[in-house]
Design a protein around this nucleic acid. Structure first.
Length: 260
DNA sequence: AACCCGCCCAACCGCGATTTT
DNA sequence: GAAAATCGCGGTTGGGCGGGT
């Protein structure tokens, strides 16, 4: 009765992923698509549990991930969404294309939370911190920033949630964004997708399971808009896959480039 | 140079919801 | 319908790294 265990508890490797493991996982997902995580480790030849594979893929290996710090606009959007949704990181991440729930959660805990506290805003309720609960020193600080605090509160709590497009408009997006600079990712991807034509001809890329779903990308039929917006807002070099010339290659290779 | 400390983030853990048998 | 497993999410941890002393 019930299902089979996803993996043997014995002999399952933990800890940081190696380049070899990453390559195996990427190759497997690209040829078979994202499904049946319990079967992935065995079929891909990995001594990991399916859960770990899913996490590695969604948080690090997915080609549509943006890398680098969240922009001011993204940060603002996260604050807005958090005010409405609370700690539902996956829901918040769904509004920020290319960002993972883990990434947003980390950013919230390490940056935004502190920022809000410093501004005298309770990161949980998004209301001004109670003065009774603050130290005299903090009190002064709160008074100092009273005006900005009010502005932030009203902006955070009462403003409407911007559209995905607005989340991507940020002229301050820094040039220091690591983007495609990660040598590991460059290596993995250079050795897998774009040098491996078989991927695009693989069974998983035909029929209902297009390469977009395989890559974790929205299908162009559904989401060519956001892709265009990204291209417009960030330019080619800021897109996670590597560049839009790569993306064009993907599009063309599956004969949907005309939708752009 | 050595040590300490804080920051960052990838990965793990635990749990509830969902799915499968 | 019950049991057992997967899936997905949110919370937490721990190791690497850089800056300060």
């Amino acid at each position: 009765m019930g299902r089979q265990p996803c993996c043997d508890k014995l002999g399952v490797k933990k800890g940081p992923w190696t380049v070899e493991e990453d390559k195996k996982l990427v190759n497997f997902i690209l040829t078979h698509g994202q499904c049946c995580w319990r079967a992935v480790p065995k079929l891909a030849g990995l001594r990991r549990c399916g859960k770990s594979c899913r996490l590695r893929w969604t948080n690090y290996l997915r080609p549509d991930l943006k890398r680098g710090l969240l922009t001011e606009a993204e940060e603002q959007l996260v604050i807005d969404l958090h005010a409405r949704l609370g700690n539902r990181w996956s829901k918040i991440a769904a509004r920020l294309p290319g960002r993972t729930d883990n990434e947003i959660k980390n950013h919230w805990n390490t940056h935004i939370k502190k920022k809000l506290i410093k501004m005298g805003i309770d990161p949980l309720t998004h209301e001004p911190l109670l003065k009774e609960a603050t130290t005299p020193q903090h009190d002064l600080e709160v008074n100092h920033e009273d005006e900005s605090q009010k502005a932030v509160c009203s902006s955070h709590v009462s403003s409407s949630v911007p559209t995905e497009n607005s989340s991507t408009t940020d002229e301050s997006r820094s040039s220091s964004d690591p983007g495609d600079d990660d040598p590991l990712m460059s290596y993995i991807w250079s050795e897998t997708i774009f040098l491996d034509d078989s991927f695009w001809n693989s069974p998983a890329t035909s029929g209902s399971g297009s390469c977009y779903s395989n890559l974790g990308l929205p299908s162009p039929e559904d989401n060519s808009e956001w892709l265009l917006d990204y291209r417009k807002d960030f330019g080619d070099e800021d897109f996670g896959v590597g560049s839009f010339s790569d993306m064009d290659m993907i599009m063309n290779s599956v004969d949907i480039g005309s939708t752009l």
